[in-house]
Every structure is written in C-alpha cells, then in structure tokens.
C-alpha cells in the first residue's frame, strides 16, 4: 500500500508541476483562461483561430514544461545511475565527459554549419565519443575499475573543455559565439513539439533502459567482484548503464544545453527522502528531477522579462536547498 501511494506520488507530482507551469508566466492568464485554452486541443482543430491565450498555453508553456520535465528527469536519473555505477555519490552526468563532449559537439556544429540544427546530432555523437574515450582510457590497465573510468572521464572532460574553448575562440564573436554561449548555458525558451519528438527518442530510450536495469545498478554498486559473484555480467551491464545514461544526458544537453547541478542534487535529495535502493530511487529521482526543472523554469520565466539561463538558477536554487537538506539530515545518512 505504501509502495502504491509512493508510485502514485511519483507519477502525479510532475503532472501537477506541468499544470502549475501552464498557469504561470509573464503573460497574465487566469485559471479560467488556462482551462479554456486547454479545452481546445489543437490536434483536431485549427489552432490559428484561438488567439493569444491558446498560443501561450499550447505553443509556449506546454512544450516548454514537457521538455523541462524530460530534461530534468534525464539528468537526475543518469546522475543516479552514474553514482551507483561508479560507487561515488559525488559524481554526476558530467562525469565521463558526456556534458563537455556534447557541449563541444554542439559548438563545433554551430561553428561549421552556422546553424543550431546541426548541434543535435553532433552533441549526441560527441557525448558518446567522450564516453568511449573515457572507457578506453579506463581500459588502459585492462580493468574496468571505477577509479580508472572516472580518471578517464576527467581527462576526456578537460580535453573537450579545452576544445570547446578553442571553438569559442575561433567562433564569430557577433553571430556564432552568442549562440554557442547561450546554447551551453541551457534554455528551454525555444522548446517546440518537434524538439520533444527528436530529442525525446534518445532521452526516452536512455531513461527506460535505466528504469529496466535499475536493480542491477544496486548490485553493480557493490563493486565489480561482488557484482559478478552475485551473478551479474558486469561488463555487459555496465555498458548498458553507461550507454543509457549517456544517451539520456546527451539528449537532454541537445535540447537544453548544459544544465549543471541537477544530476548531483536531485539524486541526493532522493537518497535523503527514500534511501538508496535504486529500485525506488530511480523512479523517485525521475519525478523529482522533472518537478525541479519545471519549477526552476517557471522561476526563470517569471522573474524577469528576459530569459535567465537555467544553469544559473539550478545552481542558485539547488545549492542552498541542498545545504538545507544536508543540515536537516545531519549529513550522515543520505
């Protein structure tokens, strides 16, 4: 019974947050306006005739909220997965160089093709490439030990960070550079349904894969030797976890740029709330990550008429909240 209500909360919370997000924004819309607009689903009616309220709800707030939920969920869940896999509660999606690889790929695409459209596949490919490089460096000593993998990730991250700086250096300061910088900062501002469809594929595959394999993440966090002795095909399972987590992260980075902090804070909040069992932690983090990013995005939209990049807000909101939680739980047990 307890478990049923937990899962009900896990499912309902993001839906409530999405609805909340539909009701809030710079443009003043009352609850009845929102409900009216929601009543006219544009799929089977001509959407041009409904006017501005309809556009705001269906073209601006809803895609944004959905995308925010997906990105938040992806970053949080892959954070949990990487933490479990590397047996280190302080790693996040950034480890293995996924974010910096994807960031570099996107910047390179903007530099080469002068359009942000090419950034999507490039971010994905380079995010994957970063993981492969980290993995190969980790294999130098013919082991897949976590420490070597993390070290490989650190090396790859810094190489890609340097390459990114170089791309920024040679980019056109008037046209390309602002695009690259804003892309890297992360924004859901231009969310469209097509983004949800395109980037949704890698994100969904990644998250569903991690949900499916979440029990094995528990066992993998016992370390390679014990996991194998417990019957896990460690290299296969680790490969799947890394692949899925990378896919989810790179997909998220594709649509929203690099948003830091979520992959670290949300898993910890989850650990504090319901413990470390990934069977429950992964769905809960998914839900928390989705809610957190929707709420942060609401803030980013209503504080000013301008767009505040999400990375700034996730850090400003997530940081103090994290400190508060650490204090409340005395830091000892997550």
């Amino acid at each position: 019974m307890k478990r049923v209500s937990l899962y009900a909360a896990v499912c309902l919370a993001p839906i409530i947050c999405i609805f909340l997000s539909l009701c809030m924004g710079r443009y003043p819309l009352g609850l009845s306006d929102v409900m009216n607009a929601l009543g006219n689903v544009p799929l089977w009616t001509d959407n041009s005739s409904f006017g501005i309220n309809h556009t705001i709800i269906w073209e601006i707030r809803l895609p944004r909220a959905i995308l925010g939920a997906m990105v938040g969920a992806c970053l949080a869940v892959s954070g949990v997965a990487f933490q479990g896999l590397f047996r280190n509660p302080l790693v996040s999606s950034g480890i293995l160089g996924v974010s910096s690889g994807a960031g570099f790929g996107a910047a390179l695409a903007i530099l080469l093709f002068n359009t942000v459209a090419a950034a999507y596949p490039f971010a994905l490919v380079f995010g994957m490439l970063a993981v492969v490089c980290s993995y190969l460096i980790g294999r130098l000593y013919r082991t897949t030990s976590a420490i070597m993998l993390v070290l490989g990730g650190v090396i790859v991250s810094s190489v890609f960070a340097a390459l990114l700086s170089f791309v920024k250096y040679v980019a056109d300061p008037y046209e390309q550079l602002p695009a690259i910088v804003f892309w890297l900062m992360g924004s859901l501002a231009s969310a469209r349904y097509s983004d949800i469809l395109i980037a949704g594929i890698p994100m969904s595959i990644g998250v569903i894969g991690l949900l499916a394999i979440r029990w094995q993440i528990n066992v993998l966090s016992m370390g390679d030797r014990e996991a194998q002795a417990l019957g896990i095909h460690t290299s296969l399972s680790k490969g799947i976890v890394i692949f899925c987590a990378t896919l989810a992260t790179a997909g998220a980075v594709c649509v929203s740029g690099v948003i830091g902090w979520i992959g670290l804070v949300i898993p910890h909040i989850g650990r504090m709330l319901i413990g470390n069992d990934n069977r429950i932690l992964i769905p809960v983090s998914l839900s928390l990550g989705a809610c957190f990013l929707i709420l942060v995005d609401i803030l980013s939209r209503i504080i000013t008429g301008a767009e505040i990049p999400l990375g700034i807000l996730t850090a400003l909101v997530g940081g103090p909240f994290f400190v508060y939680l650490l204090k409340k739980t005395k830091g000892g047990d997550w």
Binding site: R87, N88, P89, S221, E226, A229, R271, G275, N276, D277
Partner: peptide
C-alpha cells in the same frame, strides 16, 4: 556464493 574479505561500503543501503 562469495563472502569477500573486505567489503567497501559506499551507499548506506539498508
């Protein structure tokens, strides 16, 4: 089944 000599504890599982 295997009972290891040293078990390194990372996460506070129950």
């Amino acid at each position: 089944a295997y009972v290891p000599q040293i078990h390194e504890r990372t996460f506070p599982y129950l």
